[in-house]
Design a protein around this nucleic acid. Structure first.
Lengths: 297, 297
DNA sequence: TTCATTGCCTGACTAAAGTCAGCTAATGGA
DNA sequence: TCCATTAGCTGACTTTAGTCAGGCAATGAA
């Protein structure tokens, strides 16, 4: 059997649907029908409006209503009108409800751990990487870019990935101590910013904007996680950084880069950046770029 | 959110279950309840005993019975006693049934293609690779090793992977024309054999046994697909090759290998192979090994 | 103030899925 | 030959899921 893309997808489907079924079966096993369990977990600790639950779980209005009544009857959920619009109603888990949600959570964790345990040492990392890649590909349209503090754990995780990549790619290796490392203050509002891209909560890329309170800013630390490459995320991060730079009052952006980062260099050239003479003494840089971003510039 | 293994698995689960749901929804959309469609597809072109269907789909005996009656009523399936044991009954698809199965198949193909289409060029290969890895990890216990002809398409696919790996790994590159390439006849019974490992139908590894009709055989072309590495498949292939060698009347096995293949060399040393002086003039070889396999040897 | 709209609920269904006890026929060993 | 076992079937259920037509109260624009 020659395996083309389609049969490989279908084989994947077949293989995973059993696994997924097992993971989802954590929604059973507490003596509650699937529908109720799903609604309860969707409400979770934060609560949710009835409409939000209906949309997320694709439930009929009447059916959801009944499921909520049943959960109320079990003392797991309380539904109250939204003070902002008293037609709308907000469902919240009670103390007991929260305990149930936590129990479901533990069940899911156990199943996930069991899946991992079946795969000893060596395979783990590769397996998780493959899972990340698929989750990113499937959830590509859900990737969101947000401002974050450069010391935020997600930002740190991205930076670790970034430094790791540089150390691997640069023919000289990479030592952050040797590089021109910007002060964290330069990467925070009001002078600069730090953007993190997340896919379903997992950090998958970053881009820093270094400012000095002037009209010239600098783009630093553009990075995309291996699992999220090929989805056009670098472009999106750069576009977000430019938009943010405008918001911070910058009119010109600069950046420096190493010759090993060919994909990034290609991106810069493609998106309106102009190569310029060195504007700093960054020891790892071989190319310097500039882009005027002010509207009508 | 720091992502540990468990949350990554759960995130993967969440991401894929939607996708899988969409792929599985091909079981709907032909105006037949899910249960019937699943049973019909399980019967497929080959037919199946009632017990096998029951086990595979985890259906209650009574429920399955009713589903079969309904499918019979629609003229899609015929159930007849198994001549070998007339208590047991075998369900087979009728002509119309086969057409229906084919239609479901096309639906699945379409969904799979749609999934791939959403991911343009660059991502495809990486995505499929990730899918293969997960399917292999999940289906590891279903990997089977069979005899195949060295010209069989699956065998060829493995050999392409093998040559590709060698070309990448050897510091000299690799040209099959320069290497001592055994005649296909030497890799076929009654003197030799060619083993292919498959996971749910996908070729994931191979191992050749070159014979000359004497008591000394040679192990060649041990290869495991990247997606199936870390699952202990190389060990299994070597063990299968040894067993097959005994069956072909060999008492001693030899092999040569390149110094770049450190994992393979480690495996040989671990499993009772003894390094010996060069026994051939293979230009790509740096190490030669030998193992006595005759029982009590 | 009127009135269409929105958001959710209830009642009255149907369909699908799942459960369980008891039945019959075939099998194979004592 | 007897009889325990196996394989599957049937009838008589219950539960879960899903649908749809109203209904009522809150809302907000005319």
């Amino acid at each position: 059997m020659e395996m083309d893309g389609i049969s490989r997808v279908r084989r994947f489907n077949r293989a995973v649907s059993t696994e997924i079924g097992a993971l989802d079966s954590s929604f059973l096993g507490r003596g509650r029908p699937l529908g109720e369990a799903r609604v309860l977990c969707r409400i979770g600790a934060k609560g949710a409006t009835v409409a939000a639950i209906r949309d997320d779980l694709a439930l009929d209005s009447g059916l959801l209503s009944r499921l909520l009544r049943s959960l109320e009857g079990q003392g797991l959920v309380e539904v109250a009108p939204d003070p902002a619009d008293r037609r709308r109603r907000i469902a919240r888990a009670t103390k007991r409800g929260l305990r149930e949600v936590a129990a479901y959570d533990r069940l899911s964790d156990t199943r996930a751990a069991a899946l991992l345990e079946r795969h000893s040492g060596r395979t783990w990392a590769a397996l998780l990487e493959a899972m990340d890649r698929i989750a990113c590909a499937v959830g590509a349209e859900r990737i969101v870019i947000d401002t974050a503090d450069p010391h935020d754990p997600d930002a740190r995780q991205c930076l670790e990935g970034y430094y790791g990549d540089l150390a691997r790619l640069f023919d000289t290796g990479f030592d952050p101590a040797v590089s021109l490392d910007p002060e964290p203050e330069a990467l925070r509002p009001p002078v600069g910013d730090f953007l993190v891209a997340r896919c379903d909560g997992m950090p998958v890329g970053c881009c820093a904007l270094k400012g000095a309170g002037s009209a010239v800013g600098e783009v630093k630390r553009l990075w995309v996680a291996p699992a999220a490459r090929g989805l056009g995320l670098a472009e999106r991060l750069m576009a977000a950084a430019e938009a943010r730079a405008l918001g911070l009052g910058m009119t010109t952006l600069r950046l420096d880069t190493n010759r090993a980062l060919t994909a990034a260099i290609g991106l810069y050239r493609r998106t309106g950046w102009r190569e310029v003479p060195a504007f700093n003494a960054e020891p790892y840089a071989h190319h310097w770029f500039e882009k005027r971003i002010a509207p009508g510039g």
